[in-house]
């Protein structure tokens, strides 16, 4: 079930882009991680609407991880124009890494210098990697919530099919 289905990428792309943009735009980004979780829930909703098969929690987690990674990429790209507006945040990075000069390996000095001159590909990729891991975890959470919320009951399996068990009614809680 967790094998990537053909229709999984599209909702992840749409919702990931939306969540990433909303996370990057100043003022709107006050909702913090909720945009990513919300985006993954929405992706699960879109997927479950299109898919004839029910969305399992595992599927939801995969969909959420994909949404989170797309959101991280979108966030990183959209954040670039806003970087000038967010001087304080950038300054904090620069201050911190200029303090590392004595302790960090030689390669880092060049990296810091290039960062001071402007956005470097290395810093961009480092930030993107960190965001991708964090957003993927949050996306997985949102995907599972979405799978739980929008899951439709499975069709009963054909009788006697190997490895298939019918849903046990005793599992349902009052």
């Amino acid at each position: 079930m967790t094998q990537q289905r053909p229709g999984m990428f599209q909702p992840a792309l749409i919702c990931g882009l939306a969540a990433g943009v909303l996370t990057a735009v100043p003022l709107i980004n006050c909702l913090c991680c909720l945009w990513i979780i919300g985006g993954a829930i929405l992706a699960a909703f879109l997927f479950s609407k299109r898919s004839p098969q029910p969305l399992t929690p595992g599927d939801g987690a995969v969909l959420g991880i994909m949404t989170g990674i797309v959101a991280a990429v979108a966030d990183a790209i959209v954040s670039l124009p806003f970087e000038a507006m967010n001087r304080e945040y950038v300054q904090r990075f620069l201050d911190q890494f200029s303090q590392f000069f004595e302790e960090m390996p030689r390669g880092w000095e060049k990296l810091v210098e290039s960062r001071a001159a402007g956005a470097s590909p290395a810093w961009f990729l480092l930030g993107l990697l960190a965001s991708a891991v964090i957003y993927a975890a949050m996306g997985a959470l949102g995907g599972v919530i979405g799978a739980s919320t929008f899951a439709r009951p499975k069709n009963p399996p054909a009788q006697g099919s190997p490895g298939e068990t019918s849903p046990d009614p005793s599992h349902r809680q009052p």
Partner: peptide
């Protein structure tokens, strides 16, 4: 409430992958 989604969701992901 989030761990009640996260733990079963991640578990389902691993169990299903193993099964596949």
């Amino acid at each position: 409430i989030l761990p009640f989604y996260f733990i079963p969701g991640v578990t389902d992901l691993f169990v299903t992958r193993r099964k596949n």
